[in-house]
Deep mutational scan, measured.
Amino acid sequence: MKVIFLQDVKGKGKKGEIKNVPDGYARNFLFKKGLAVEATPANLKELE
């Protein structure tokens, strides 16, 4: 799953980066803790 990092995550990505991460990791950790959002067209547009 492609995500946009909202904060630096040690060993995974830095704020503003767009990266592919495993689905479970994204849903169960990154999204729940507010560290990233899914890289949807709407979210990508907001990032610009």
Rank of each mutant, 00 (worst) to 15 (best):
A36Y: 00
N20S: 12
E48V: 13
V3G: 00
L6W: 02
P41V: 13
V3L: 03
A36L: 02
K10E: 14
V37Q: 08
E48Q: 14
K19Y: 07
Y25Q: 04
G13P: 01
V21M: 11
Q7V: 15
N20F: 15
G16P: 00
K14E: 06
K12W: 15
E46I: 15
K45T: 09
V21Q: 04
L6Y: 03
V3M: 02
P22N: 10
E38F: 04
M1K: 06
L30A: 01
K15V: 08
G34I: 03
P41Q: 12
K32M: 13
D23Q: 13
G24W: 15
N20H: 14
R27T: 09
K2T: 14
V21W: 02
G11P: 03
T40S: 09
K10P: 15
K33S: 11
D23G: 11
N43S: 08
N20G: 07
A26R: 02
I4E: 02
D8L: 04
L35P: 00
F29Q: 10
P41W: 11
T40Q: 05
M1Q: 06
L44A: 05
K10M: 12
A39Y: 13
M1P: 04
K10W: 14
L44D: 04
N43D: 06
I18H: 04
R27N: 09
P22E: 12
K15D: 02
A36I: 06
D23P: 13
L6G: 01
Y25A: 05
F29D: 13
G16F: 09
G34W: 05
L47P: 06
L47E: 06
L44V: 12
R27K: 14
I4Q: 03
K15A: 10
A42P: 07
T40P: 05
Q7S: 09
N28T: 07
G34E: 06
K14L: 11
I18M: 07
N43V: 12
K14H: 10
L30V: 00
L44Y: 07
F29I: 15
K45M: 13
F29K: 08
L30W: 02
G34A: 07
K45R: 14
K10S: 11
K2D: 11
N43A: 12
Q7H: 13
A42G: 13
E38D: 04
N43Y: 08
D8F: 07
G16Q: 02
K2M: 15
V3E: 00
A42Q: 11
K12P: 01
R27S: 05
K2L: 15
A39P: 03
K19Q: 07
K2S: 11
G24Y: 14
Y25V: 07
E46K: 15
G24M: 12
L47F: 14
L44F: 08
A39N: 02
V37E: 06
V3W: 01
K14M: 11
G11I: 02
V21T: 02
V9T: 03
K2W: 15
Y25W: 11
Q7E: 13
I4L: 10
L6R: 06
E48R: 14
K45N: 11
L6K: 06
K2H: 10
E17D: 12
K2Q: 12
G11T: 05
Q7K: 14
L35I: 06
L6N: 02
G16Y: 09
N43R: 12
L47I: 12
K15R: 13
A36N: 00
T40G: 05
V37D: 02
N20V: 15
A26L: 09
E17Q: 11
D8I: 03
N20E: 13
K14T: 09
L6D: 00
E38R: 09
A36Q: 00
V3N: 00
A26E: 08
K14G: 05
L44W: 06
N28K: 11
V3P: 00
T40K: 05
D8W: 07
G13F: 12
F29H: 14
I4H: 02
Y25E: 07
I18A: 04
K45W: 10
G24T: 13
V3T: 01
F31L: 14
A42K: 11
K32Q: 12
L35H: 03
A26S: 04
N28H: 12
K45Q: 13
V21K: 00
N43M: 13
K32S: 10
F31R: 01
E46P: 07
D23L: 14
N20L: 14
K2Y: 15
M1S: 04
L6A: 02
L44T: 07
V9P: 00
V21P: 00
K10A: 13
N20Y: 15
M1G: 03
A39I: 05
P41K: 10
E48T: 14
K2P: 08
E17I: 03
F5S: 00
N28G: 10
V37P: 01
A39F: 12
L30Q: 00
V21R: 00
I4F: 07
G13T: 03
P22Q: 09
L47T: 08
M1V: 14
L35G: 01
E46R: 14
K10Y: 10
